[in-house]
Design a protein around this nucleic acid. Sequence first.
DNA 1: CTCCAGGTACTAA
DNA 2: TTAGTACCTGGA
Length: 285
Amino acid sequence: MNTLELKNFNLEGTLLGGQAFNWDLIDGIYYGFTQDKIIKIKSIDGNSVEWQTYPGQNDFEFINRYFGLSENYDDVLFKIQKDQHIKFAIEKYPAIRILNQDFEQTLLSFILSSHKSIKGVRKLVRDLSKKYGEKIRVDDIEFSLFPKTEVLAALLEQDLRNAGAGFRAKYLKSAAERLLELRNDGIDFYSEEDFVREELLKFIGIGDKIADCIMTFSLQFKTVTPLDIWGKRVLIDLYNVNPKLKYAEMRDWYKNYFGENTSIAGQFLFEYYRKEYSKLNADKA
DNA sequence: CTCCAGGTACTAA
DNA sequence: TTAGTACCTGGA
């Protein structure tokens, strides 16, 4: 295993918090699957993590990019501490990072997230992977990789329905087909924000929220934060923002308030509020 | 059995 | 442009 010095890296909040659907905690070790590799990561103590990729055991370039290790994390944290809410969130659920995930897998995964719980999306992603992904054995566990885009594109809508995708089946298929076209279209998804969003919204099955998820959790737009149900609750409940505001207006509110590191600020607030809110409901029950 | 889910597309005012 | 509704399916 390779070792990395990383203070208090919050693996749970980062990997299981809803940015990604492809991580599992098995015997204290996090295993993630992409379209071509398994990633293994484990925190050793408060100060470091061990990691490995398979195949190709030491793909540091991937790890560095995926976890955004080259940015000055302390500086980012310093800059977003605008008020007591965010300070409390960072204190309670510290050291969360925004992932830079593979574009195609992220887009396909979030298309599946429509009108589904996190748990439901995770299950669906695994069912599809088991059925249509390549197998790879790590630590004597058989993992299924996320299905290749080509494979998904070649399937019938009915195949995807049978795998549990429901009404998202046709969205998934057409998105996979479009992604294959895009490989030759020369569109730069790492360019200007409004342009990229427009391109994403052209996909059937991608609306405001999913477009922003893809931009935030894969394409590294750091001033964007997705306004899901939790993002809206945070604004309305904690910041007394008018619930009638339109999606884009709420997104602008976040951006204007948190500035250049809005994405990570949003992630802290969501993680905090999601956990506290469900705790509240559990108490009531 | 009913209800609902980290949304989106479609339709009608 | 804005509001209302159906949508697959599994889990609570």
